[in-house]
Design a protein around this nucleic acid. Sequence first.
DNA 1: AGAGCACTGATCC
DNA 2: GGATCAGTGCTCT
Length: 110
Amino acid sequence: MLSPFAKQVHKLLRTVPKGRVTTYKELANAMDTKAFRAIGQVMRSNPNAPNTPCHRVVSANGTLGGFMGEKSGPKVLKKIRLLKKEGTLVHGNRVVDFNRKLYKFQNPNR
DNA sequence: AGAGCACTGATCC
DNA sequence: GGATCAGTGCTCT
């Protein structure tokens, strides 16, 4: 069961074009909230994985943060590879040209 | 009801 | 410059 909050997160995430990334902060900002952690929690639960590219969400400093358990096994590497294919280059634990790939939501509040 | 979390910003050292 | 504290809202146990 997805809470409206989670649903909103997914929605915003889907609005992010491929080859682009976003940050928890932006998401929270777009939702007019400050619960970055809550978002992370929802992601960790991974409600609808294929529809919710959590890997497309990164920390504000451009690092992946701790996706699938911090160390991110080969699985995430694979995802990163896919991401790379899409246009999001991830170097090690960081997004290349993060500030350039960062997608900012259009929030009337800002 | 309580603890935890995939964060971030500010403060402390 | 790095480490720790505090704030925040939601999910899980």
